[in-house]
Nucleic acid binder design. Structure first.
Length: 376
DNA sequence: TGTAGTTGCGCC
DNA sequence: AAAGGGCGCAACTACA
């Protein structure tokens, strides 16, 4: 599988890299301006290295704030301009370092990216990718647009909709989830209704229901739910609120609760995916990890079965080639003229591979055709 | 100077 | 005891 960053993509990437670098530098200067003086340094400029967590803790302590950890979740809970500034700096500096100009060295001269793909790179049976890792590129459109199909070609991108929730519905047999999927309801909206007790929920409430759905399936604690809601969605709640949301979730999806209790009680030493693939776990491993292995592993099985079908059916669409697979997404490059046929071919394979695993839960695949991975 | 371990964070 | 899971990469830190 090899995606393409052509000259235009490379130029766009370089502009983004420079922009991120300038932004990180500017934020570092702002930090110097408002940070307490550093012991042993006469001038403020450049006194603190903001990438050093030891120095971050030291600077915050000088400002009267004790940080137990400097990770984003913890910083989000700190009401001080230093914390907000640091969070911005971290975001910019991540883009500048991991996804900076240096990243482009891994693009071959003709514009192709030949990453290393490991078929069983993850314990769960998912693939992993390195040099470069093609599975953790920034999700923002401005970055993904740098990956472009060659002249006369297009990218057909298809991804499974809410696949992990669907798999969890099948494994747990939860009645409410099965019914919601059977009748085509939106599960995030359903959760939001049960959390708020309202029939009509706002977009923000639905958005908050997403981490609740994904997190609680794998044993997220009320405390962590609260932290994540604040850090990732800017939503504050008390721990009691979080506890109530959690209770509402498990009342609504009693089958999920039952599944978890079963794992805790039985303390299994092996877990199987819905394809029957087994892996060994410790009896005392966290139940959430075991639940996750079964779900994530099944997703991996289904995606690989889909890729295998594409190989077996490659003669139906000569010239179409998969260039990317990101856990629940497959991108195929093909001639512009065959895009519609390839879209149908891809969607069919993805559905036919996954459907038998999670029957009777329906599989939904969203397909888009565009010149770039960013969708334009 | 090079290596190993830790922390943090990008994606799903 | 309490705990969402799975990766790979960059920067920092400690140490030889």
């Amino acid at each position: 599988m090899t995606a393409t960053v052509d000259r235009r993509g490379r130029a766009a990437w370089e502009a983004l890299a420079d922009q991120a670098e300038r932004e990180a530098e500017g934020l570092a200067q702002q930090f110097d301006a408002i940070a307490p003086p550093r012991e042993g340094y006469l001038s403020q400029a450049g006194a603190w290295n903001w990438s050093s967590n030891d120095q971050v803790k030291e600077a915050f302590r000088a400002a009267g704030i004790d940080l137990e950890s400097t990770e984003d979740d913890a910083l989000a809970a700190v009401a001080h301009p230093l914390a907000a500034l640091l969070r911005h700096y971290r975001a910019a500096s991540k883009l500048a370092s991991t996804y900076g100009r240096k990243w482009l060295k891994q693009v071959a001269a003709e514009g192709r990216v030949y990453a290393d793909w490991r078929q069983l790179g993850c314990i769960t049976g998912r693939m992993s990718s390195s040099s470069p890792n093609m599975q953790n590129l920034p999700g923002e459109e401005r970055y993904r647009r740098c990956f472009r199909a060659p002249e006369g070609r297009v990218l057909v991108k298809a991804d499974y909709s809410q696949i992990e929730l669907r798999i969890a519905a099948r494994i747990s047999g939860d009645k409410a989830l099965l019914e919601a999927y059977r009748t085509g309801q939106d599960v995030h909206t359903l959760t939001a209704r049960r959390m708020t007790g309202k029939q009509e929920v706002t977009a923000a409430e639905r958005k908050l229901a997403k981490p609740v759905n994904f997190g609680l399936i794998y044993g997220l604690s009320a405390r962590t739910l609260r932290r994540k809601a604040l850090a990732e969605y800017g939503v504050s709640m008390t721990e009691e609120d979080a506890q109530r949301y959690k209770a509402a979730f498990f009342t609504t999806y009693a089958g999920i609760d039952c599944w978890h209790r079963h794992i805790r009680r039985q303390r299994p030493t092996e877990v199987r995916t819905l394809a029957g693939r087994r892996f060994v776990v410790g009896p005392d491993d966290f139940y959430g990890a075991k639940a996750n292995y079964a779900v994530q592993g099944t997703g991996g099985d289904g995606l690989k079965a889909a890729l295998a079908l594409l190989w077996e059916r490659r003669h139906e669409v000569a010239g179409a080639v998969p260039v990317l697979a990101v856990h629940d997404e497959v991108v195929v490059e093909c001639d512009a003229g065959q895009a519609e046929a390839v879209a149908a071919w891809l969607k069919t394979a993805m559905v036919e591979a996954m459907a038998p695993l999670i029957d009777p839960v329906p599989v939904e695949v969203e397909v888009k055709v565009a010149r770039t991975w960013g969708g334009d």
